[in-house]
């Protein structure tokens, strides 16, 4: 169970997500349950990873059963103000063996971001989208738990040249 506070305009919503990668995702907005269907539309379509409801737009979110959510799972932050759509998280606990990207790198969908060793198996963690790396949150040798951020992408909408 993950809890988020999302501020849209002046109103704050409390959001609870049982499991961000389940299908459908069960979400409670201020206690009201919704089921959200996530559709994987291929990695080359950047729109697929862009949520319809962006925190930046001051409109009241209208949670409907078929809302799109990002394939990268949201990650809470202390302030609750962080962009929740553009963080690639560790899919399972393990150790980072190597990191293949740096801040400012343009990555393509499917490009290796880092290698995560879990249960003595090396797992290539690949970028689900095209984008520019805004921050690399891990370094080689780091131990990560499930859900820890690996890299953050720049805000959606900023297109690389």
């Amino acid at each position: 169970m993950r809890r988020y506070r999302i501020k849209v305009g002046n109103k704050t919503y409390s959001i609870e997500i049982d499991d961000p990668q389940a299908s459908p995702v069960r979400v409670r907005v201020d206690g009201r349950p919704f089921e959200v269907q996530v559709e994987w539309e291929g990695a080359d379509d950047e729109a697929a990873v862009t949520p319809e409801v962006r925190p930046a737009q001051p409109s009241r979110p209208s949670p409907v059963p078929q809302a799109r959510v990002p394939v990268t799972a949201p990650r809470p932050s202390a302030a609750g103000e962080e962009d929740v759509t553009d963080t690639l998280i560790a899919p399972m606990p393990g150790t980072i063996l190597s990191v293949a990207v740096r801040e400012g790198d343009l990555v393509q969908p499917g490009q290796e971001v880092c290698v995560l060793e879990a249960m003595k198996m090396k797992n290539s963690i690949r970028s689900p989208r095209q984008g520019i790396i805004a921050e690399v949150a891990v370094s080689a040798g780091a131990t990560v738990a499930y859900g820890d951020p690996l890299v953050r992408f720049q805000q959606p909408g900023i297109r690389p040249q």
Binding site: D19, P20, Q21, A22, S23, W40, A73, P91, M92, P93, A145, Y146, G147
Partner: peptide
């Protein structure tokens, strides 16, 4: 085969 199963910690 495409069904995703998130890690349940």
């Amino acid at each position: 085969r495409l069904i995703r199963m998130p890690y349940t910690s």
